[in-house]
Design a protein around this nucleic acid. Structure first.
Length: 213
DNA sequence: TACCAGGAGAAAA
DNA sequence: TTTTCTCATGGT
């Protein structure tokens, strides 16, 4: 099988190379980063994570015991800091109640996704970031870039909901963790390079080289 | 100055 | 059920 979605992946991989995601040292750091990056540029999240590391607050135990206002101050650069501080503590409370990382790895993907979505502040994209990049589950992460780029390519209508888009990608592609990891990272890289505002800029590899366009 | 960034939840219609 | 509003910093 060689779908249009496979062709887009091949084209971007040739253009940008392997992205080596997620940019984090531990699975727990992936989870924290996934919450902090909601509607926020990653460069701002990096500052917030550096502050957490400097305060030794990059563990679930230390986050829930941190003073909420001090925690908010540490993550201020990532924006929405009051909201995200409360959500980080809420997530970490749930995380420890579940028994931590090793206990969560025992749960099947469907149930783990459902459990993550039950946590306040964890929506579908954040849940899928965590499933794919922290737990290595074959889940396709959909973001605003995904909808924008694939709508312009004519592969999506553009008004589909999150779960519909996710189902399309997971139907069109093999359930391969390595590929899903790379695919989402390449979409982000592509969006940063090109096509932020224009309908498909001249330098866009998907316009010049992709067979589906 | 205005817009956008690796969203989510609550309130309003 | 669908749309709108709120949360907020930092770069362009």
């Amino acid at each position: 099988m060689c779908s249009a979605f496979q062709n887009v992946f091949d084209t971007m991989l040739v253009a940008y190379g392997s992205q080596h995601w997620w940019p984090a040292d531990t699975p727990f750091e992936v989870m924290v980063g996934a919450i902090l990056t909601q509607n926020t540029a990653w460069s701002n999240v990096e500052r917030a994570i550096a502050n957490l590391k400097a305060s030794d607050w990059l563990t679930a135990e230390n986050i829930i015991h941190a003073d909420l206002s001090q925690l908010a101050e540490a993550i201020r650069p990532s924006g929405y800091f009051n909201q995200k501080a409360a959500r980080l503590q809420g997530f970490c409370t749930w995380y420890l109640q579940q028994g931590g990382y090793d206990a969560l790895t025992q749960i099947n993907t469907h149930d783990l996704r459902k459990a993550l979505l039950s946590v306040k502040g964890i929506g579908p994209e954040t849940a899928d970031d965590i499933l794919l990049y922290a737990f290595g589950r074959p889940v396709f992460v959909v973001d605003a870039y995904t909808k924008r780029i694939f709508s312009r390519l004519g592969l999506l209508k553009g008004d589909e909901g999150y779960e519909v888009v996710r189902a399309i990608f997971e139907r069109e592609l093999p359930a391969d963790v390595g590929m899903f990891n790379e695919y989402h990272a390449l979409i982000v890289q592509h969006a940063k390079q090109h096509c932020k505002k224009k309908p498909l800029c001249g330098a866009c590899c998907l316009q010049q080289g992709c067979k589906v366009v």
